[in-house]
Amino acid sequence: MLEFDGLHKSYGDNRVLEGVGFTVAPGSMFGFCGSNGAGKTTTMRIAMGLARADAGEVRWRGRPLDEAMRRRIGYMPEERGLYPKMRVGEQLTYFARLHGMGGADAARAAGEWAARLGLGDRRDDPVEKLSLGNQQRVQLAAALVSRPEVLILDEPFSGLDPVGVDALAEALLEQCRAGVPVVFSSHQLDLVERLCDSVGILARGRMVATGTVEELRRREAGRVLRVVVPDAAPGWAAGVPGVRVVSESRGDTLLELAGGTDDQAVLAAALRTGRVTHFAWREATLVELFREAVADPAQQTAREQVAA
């Protein structure tokens, strides 16, 4: 298990992390979401020993991470970093060696990863001559080249074209299947939803939601029903008891049902207006879950007070 446990971190008066914790099982992928400045990067930097937590620790296999164990982690920093004038192949070999691989092993692994990420013919080019997308691939190869036990990647998908996204996703899934726990942060929630076994949403230095996407959906209280009734007059559902109209546009209606409300009564009301072309519970997307989770509670309270 890779465990992030009760991480606190302040820079002066700015409290960045206030008890961040989650666990990632070996062979599973954890999507780390949160608004800009929520503390994702700080959390990852603490794991890599680049920032010191005021409290809390990160453990791997039950032991707090130390320098030797960190060498077994593949890391991709948010601020990409490579030696601009160093050749791709030499650079990957160097990073493999810094992670403890022998010279010949490192060179072989560097060649393999360069080839796998489509950089085979660019191995002798200096990194600065590569396109940004290819530099990103080198960066990923640098994280993977030492055959790490754990992967911690900060925004690995940002700046990649769709082909690159697929290549990276495939590489990460393969690592997962080999038993490596993978933590990555991303703003591309569709990707997180597609790839991750579990998701953590960070807001204002706290984990506001963790679990599988399914669990998060189930936890979401308000149930939304989408009914499409092309012939209905506006406001057709307003009179149905226990129903709140979320939105309505030319018959395409989103309804929130209070607990205990019979959805069949809603269907009956819809049928009374004429044709019903769509009637289904709508699954919240991760985007909606995310919006809900990171919404500032202070603002939410204010809105509720206005409504009351």
């Binding site: 680049l50 960190r70 060498r71 890391y75 601020e79 490579l82 030696y83 601009p84 810094l98």
Partner: peptide
């Protein structure tokens, strides 16, 4: 400065002091 400017230092310091 090269290591700081290119940010490669973060990757380096993840493996050494």
């Amino acid at each position: 400065v090269e290591e700081k400017a290119s940010r490669v230092v973060e990757l380096l310091l993840a493996t050494m002091r």
